[in-house]
């Protein structure tokens, strides 16, 4: 399990316990956290689960793959150095405490 904190664009924070193996995108959807859509179902085909990952955690994530990298350029909100797709961040115990921030808009 890992405690993951989602911070909405307006600053509202929601912390949820997520089981290892799920993704940041699914964790938001299953817990009713708004601000992540996942229109393509989590296949890195759209860019509607865009999140900004707190720097402390950024280096602990799996390396960004080309599909994700390409799509982030197409996200509605500006891409930053810490932009990732929530569907590609898989939760593990090592990510206990992860903090992600949602962008202003996903669509």
């Amino acid at each position: 399990m890992a405690l993951v904190t989602y911070i909405a664009a307006d600053g509202r924070a929601t912390a949820v316990e997520l089981p290892a193996g799920t993704t940041v995108k699914d964790g938001a959807l299953q817990n009713g956290v708004e601000g992540i859509i996942g229109e393509c179902g989590g296949n890195a085909m759209c860019a509607t689960c865009h999140v900004y990952v707190d720097d402390h955690w950024l280096a602990r994530l799996a390396v960004i793959e080309e599909v994700e990298d390409a799509l982030l350029d197409d996200a509605v909100s500006p891409r930053r150095h810490n932009s990732r797709l929530g569907c590609q961040i898989r939760i593990s115990d090592a990510l206990d405490g992860l903090v992600v921030r949602m962008p202003e808009a996903q669509e």
């Binding site: 080309e66 990298d69 390409a70 799509l71």
Partner: peptide, 10 residues
């Protein structure tokens, strides 16, 4: 070829 796709969409 995801980059090609994103570029094509634009």
């Amino acid at each position: 070829a995801p980059r090609e796709h994103v570029a094509a969409r634009r």
